[in-house]
Simulated assay, not measured.
Amino acid sequence: MWKKLKLFQTFIHKSDYLNSKIKVLITYRYLFFLIFAVFIWIDFHVYTGRSLVGLYSIIMVFSGLVFKPVWQGILQSILVTIIRYVVAPDGFPSEVEVIFFQWISYFAIWYAISALVRNSIEQKENLVRMTTALANSIDKRDKYTAFHSSNVARYAELIAKEMGFDQKFCSEIKLAAQLHDLGKIGIPESILNKSGRLTQEEYEIIKTHPMIGYDIVKHIKTFSNNGILDAILYHHEREDGSGYPSGLEGQKIPIKAKIIAVADSFDAMTSNRRYRENNSFSFAVKEILRCRGTHYDPAVVDSFIQVIDRKGTDILNVKVISDQG
């Protein structure tokens, strides 16, 4: 088990997320043409009589950020090359090879930047696929909690949207929720699959899973910057300070951890467990309301209740609970 854990750590430390600013640029590709037009105006009206090769190199960097297909890069570099000589004080050179090498230079800039973007996107997609697969494999270690992480991720995302958080935050908390029980990879099977309630000693071992999960992914810088690490580590903290692993209370608990705590508890109470049958939908809602302000953040609970009021038991319709070993 620990060898697998070390291999996973080694792989995941080399992965990182695509910078969100680049994703915004890719979304708004039309900005390329606006910036290109501004650069042409600057070249034609502000710096008349000067050949601004660097100005067009900048536009090719931007093109590489927002256009991925090679044919688009070829067309963009051809367009930039033509405009560069149309506006140039000396016009087109008589030597065709000069024009060709100018185009090659612009295309090389585009290709280098585009390759970096593609590599970043692939790393992110591979990371998400791998972590999701790992989370699902952890769930499947226990037939009573199969798909738990996926359920919690869906509930957490609904709550975050209800609270008015933007899409970036919602995507982050969805991933954090997928990974919230990652540390259970280090918990012995005999404890995870024990029939009946856990002893105090066994419960203390279970309580180590947030720290184990944190240790697995703590070297991923983006996870630290966007709060995913804190969500994994603190999702069992309580408002009154009675949670674990650090006994944080109130505003000291990160908001992502607070949201996952409610989503986690709701799924746990509406799922079959090895030591009991699932509670009713109404019981789970009442229990979360009862613990508002003690276990759970009031604002998070209020948003959760708003989701419940709107969706009712339909919130469970896509909930998948496996009855297979």
Rank of each mutant, 00 (worst) to 15 (best):
K3Y: 12
L5Q: 06
H13V: 14
V24P: 00
V24E: 14
F36M: 11
I40F: 12
I42H: 03
I42W: 13
D43E: 13
D43I: 01
F44V: 08
R50H: 12
L52P: 03
V53L: 13
Y56A: 03
S57Y: 06
L65G: 08
K68G: 03
K68Q: 15
Q72H: 12
I78D: 07
I78F: 14
L79A: 14
V80L: 12
Y85L: 08
V86G: 01
V86Y: 13
A88P: 01
D90N: 14
V96S: 11
V98Y: 08
I99D: 05
F101R: 11
Q102T: 15
Q102V: 10
S105E: 11
A108W: 12
I109A: 05
A112D: 05
A112K: 09
A115N: 13
L116N: 08
V117I: 13
R118S: 10
R118A: 07
R118I: 10
K124S: 14
A133W: 09
L134V: 15
S137D: 11
I138F: 00
R141A: 04
K143Y: 10
A146Q: 08
F147T: 05
F147L: 04
S150R: 09
K161C: 04
M163W: 05
D166A: 08
D166F: 01
K174E: 13
A177D: 05
K184L: 12
K184D: 01
I185S: 09
P188R: 13
G196T: 04
T199W: 05
T199I: 01
E201G: 07
E202F: 06
E204Q: 13
E204W: 00
I205P: 04
I206L: 14
H209Q: 07
I212G: 03
G213V: 05
G213S: 11
I220A: 04
K221H: 07
S224G: 15
N226W: 06
N226A: 11
G227E: 01
A231Y: 02
I232T: 13
Y234F: 15
G241M: 02
G243W: 01
Y244N: 07
I253H: 03
A261D: 10
A261V: 01
D264L: 09
D267L: 01
A268Q: 09
A268K: 09
M269I: 00
T270Q: 06
R273Q: 15
N278Y: 11
K286V: 05
K286S: 15
T294L: 12
Y296R: 02
D297H: 08
F304H: 01
I308C: 03
I308Y: 05
D309K: 11
D309H: 10
G312A: 07
T313H: 10
L316P: 11
V318L: 15
K319S: 10
D323H: 15
Q324M: 06
